[in-house]
Design a protein around this nucleic acid. Structure first.
Lengths: 352, 352
DNA sequence: GCAATTTACGGGCACGTGCCCGTAAAGGTA
DNA sequence: TACCTTTACGGGCACGTGCCCGTAAATTGC
C-alpha cells in the first residue's frame, strides 16, 4: 500500500557520486559545466542504476510547454473523413495535456494546393517542437521536410506516406495490401466472366497512393491466375454530375460490369449513381468509414468498406511525437494500420 | 513556450477562501475537521474555478499505491487467446505505473472451476482496490461480485458479460451481432441447398455466451427469410480425437454440409479435421486471432475469423479501473468491441 | 469555574526534477 | 601581484498536492 522508501533518482546518483543533484542534472541533460572525469563517473552510476527519470516530477518542475502542429485537410462537403483523425488527436491531447503538451491544428483545403503551402509556411513561422502532417502534396511536403530536418523538428506522416523523406514515423495503411483485400472481397459476389471496373475520382494528378492501391488490387487476380477483364477510369472532377456523366459513358461501353472498386472514400458518389441508374446488382467496394458511405452500406448498395482506423491514426500520431519529445523513447518508423473490413452487419460497432 | 504564471490549484482556492491549503485539501478529500460554513464556501469556489487537480503533483506527493487484480485464464495448450488481453494489461500497466498503479495477475485453468474459485478467494484475501476479471463461471462470479460490492471494490468484466451483476464496466464483444456477422460471411461461399453446421466445442455446460452467438447466427437467416437446414452439434471434450469422432459422425449423417460455423476459438480443431478428412470445400468460420487459427487461415481452410481486439480489451479494462480509481472520472458501463473480420489477406496487419 | 477533550484550522515538509544564482578554484593578461 | 574571465560545481527554491503535527478556540464534563 505504500511506496518503498529507498531514496531514488537523481538524489541517489548524486549521493553515490559525491556531487550535488545539480551536477547530475547537468550530465542528464548534457549541458556544459561538468569536467570529463566526474561526467564519466556519473554516467557509469546512471547506467548501473538503470536510472529512469520520474516523468511526473520532471513535467511538474519544468515550465516548458511542448507545442505540436497538426496539418490536415479540413472537413469538406465532400467528405468528413478527417473528423476521425482529429478526434484521435483530441483524445491524445486530453491525455497528455497534463504533461505540458499543447497542440494547434492547421486545416487546409484538400482541393487547393496553395492552402497547403500556406499552412506549412505558417507552421514554420510558429514555434513548434513537432509536426503531425498529412503529406497530400509531394513537392511541398518535400520542401517542408527538408526545413524540419534542418531545424531538427520531428514530423510524423499520417494516412499517406512519402518513404523517401525522413519522417519520424508513418502511421497509416499499407496501400498495396488494402487494394489486395479489396479485390478479395470483390470476388465474393462477382459472377463469372463479368468485368471489373476500377474508379479513381480525384482532382490531384500525382496520386501515387491510388497507384499502389490499384497495383495491389490487380495483383490479387494475377496471384490467382484469374484475368477477368478489368476496366479503369479516372475522373478528375469530384462533383456528382461529372462522376455520373463519366460513369454513364463507361457503363454504356461495357455492358457486363459486375463489380466496381473505388480507390478512395468517394465511393458514395458512385453508390449514388448506381442507385439512381438502377444498377445495384453491381458489387461495390470502396474506402473509409464516413457517414455518406455508411448510409449506402446500410442500403446494400456498397458491399464492403475498407477502413484504416482513422481515429487511431490521429491518436498514434500525436503519441509518437509525445514519446519522442517528452518521454524520449524510440518509436517505430513504420506503423501500418489494420485493414478493417466493414459491412452492413458490423459497422455499428466500428470505432470511428 | 512557458506555462502561464497565474497561481493555480489548491493554493488559489485557499487564497480566495482565506483559509490554508490544508483546509482546502480536507474539503477535496472530504475528510473531517472543517466547519460546514467554510466547507460550503470552499466548495463554491471549487465549482466556480472548475478546479481540476493536477494529477502529476497529486500522484507525486501521494505515497499510496493502487493495486489492481487481474483474473484471467492461463494460456493453455488449447489456446493462446489470453496472451493478447494480457499484453493489453501490460501495456496499460506500463503507461500508468508512473501514477503509482501496480497490477497482479491471477491465472486460472479454464477447464477447472475450482481453480477459478481458488483464485478469486485469493484476490479477496489480498488488498486490491480494483479487479479486472473474465467471469467464466457464473455462480462463482456472482458471489465474488457480491463481496466486491460489499467492500466497494470496482470490478470490470472482459470478454464475456453477466449483465445482472453491477460491474463498473463490461468490455468485450456483442455476442449476438458477432453471430450475425458470422452468418453473413458464411453465405458468401455457401452453395444453394447446402446444409450449415453449427459446432460448439466446450467443457462448460452453462455457456450462455455461445447461445447468444447462435441466436445471432440464426437470426441472420430468419431476417432474410432463408431457411436452409441448420444442423448443430455440441462437443463436450476439447481434444482433437473426440472432436474428430463427433464430426465424422455428423458428416456421415449429413452428406451435404456446405459450411461450418464454430462458436468459439476452437475452430482450428475443426479445421484440422476438415483438412485431414479432405473436406476443405466446406466453408469454415470461427472466432479469435490465435496462432493455430491463423495457420489455417493461411491454408485457406478457415475462411474468416471474427475477432474482438483482445489486446484492446485488456488495455481498456485496466484503463477503466484507472479512470475510476485514480482520475476519478466516469467510465461507460458498456463498451462493445468492434467485430473485426480477419482473412488470409489482411491478418498480417491485425494488431493482436 | 477549571481541566479535559474535541473541533477547526494553519504551518510546513515531502515527493523528484528543473534550473537559477552564487562562488571557490583555476587559468589568463598586464 | 592585482584584476578579470572561465570552469566546475553546490545551494536552494519552485512546481502542486498530500498529509503530519501543532495549536488556538470551542465545547464538554464535573
Amino acid at each position: 500500500m505504500k511506496k518503498e522508501n529507498t531514496s531514488q533518482g537523481v538524489k541517489e546518483i548524486a549521493r553515490r557520486a559525491n556531487v550535488s543533484t545539480a551536477t547530475v542534472d547537468r550530465v542528464l541533460h548534457n549541458r556544459t559545466g561538468v569536467s570529463e572525469k566526474t561526467k564519466k563517473r556519473i554516467n557509469e552510476i546512471i547506467k548501473e542504476l538503470d536510472y529512469q527519470p520520474n516523468l511526473l516530477a520532471s513535467r511538474l518542475a519544468s515550465k516548458k510547454i511542448i507545442s505540436i502542429a497538426i496539418v490536415i485537410p479540413s472537413v469538406s462537403e465532400e467528405t468528413d473523413f478527417w473528423e476521425a483523425p482529429l478526434r484521435g488527436v483530441r483524445r491524445a491531447e486530453a491525455e497528455i495535456k497534463q504533461y505540458g503538451v499543447s497542440t494547434q491544428v492547421f486545416f487546409f483545403d484538400l482541393n487547393d494546393k496553395d492552402s497547403f503551402s500556406g499552412k506549412i509556411a505558417e507552421v514554420l513561422r510558429g514555434d513548434f517542437q513537432g509536426v503531425l502532417i498529412s503529406p497530400s502534396y509531394i513537392e511541398e511536403t518535400t520542401k517542408f521536410a527538408a526545413e524540419c530536418e534542418l531545424r531538427k523538428i520531428p514530423f510524423v506522416f499520417i494516412d499517406s506516406n512519402i518513404p523517401e523523406l525522413h519522417s519520424l514515423s508513418y502511421i497509416g495503411p499499407h496501400l498495396f495490401k488494402s487494394g489486395y483485400v479489396g479485390a478479395k472481397l470483390l470476388t465474393y459476389r462477382l459472377e463469372r466472366d463479368k468485368k471489373i471496373l476500377i474508379i479513381n475520382i480525384s482532382k490531384e494528378i500525382d496520386n501515387f497512393n491510388y497507384q499502389k492501391i490499384e497495383e495491389g488490387f490487380r495483383s490479387y487476380f494475377q496471384d490467382r491466375g484469374q484475368s477477368g477483364e478489368i476496366v479503369r477510369i479516372d475522373i478528375r472532377e469530384t462533383d456528382y454530375q461529372s462522376v455520373a456523366r463519366h460513369l454513364t459513358y463507361v457503363f454504356h461501353l461495357n455492358k457486363d460490369i459486375g463489380a466496381a472498386f473505388v480507390t478512395n472514400s468517394r465511393v458514395h458518389t458512385v453508390a449514388s449513381f448506381l442507385k439512381n441508374s438502377h444498377r445495384t446488382h453491381v458489387s461495390l467496394i470502396g474506402f473509409d468509414f464516413i457517414s455518406e458511405n455508411v448510409a449506402y452500406l446500410e442500403n446494400n448498395v456498397i458491399d464492403f468498406l475498407i477502413c484504416h482506423r482513422p481515429e487511431d491514426q490521429g491518436y498514434r500520431g500525436i503519441m509518437a511525437l509525445y514519446q519522442t519529445l517528452v518521454v524520449n523513447a524510440q518509436v517505430s518508423k513504420l506503423s501500418y494500420m489494420p485493414i478493417d473490413i466493414v459491412t452492413k452487419e458490423n459497422y455499428e460497432f466500428y470505432h470511428n
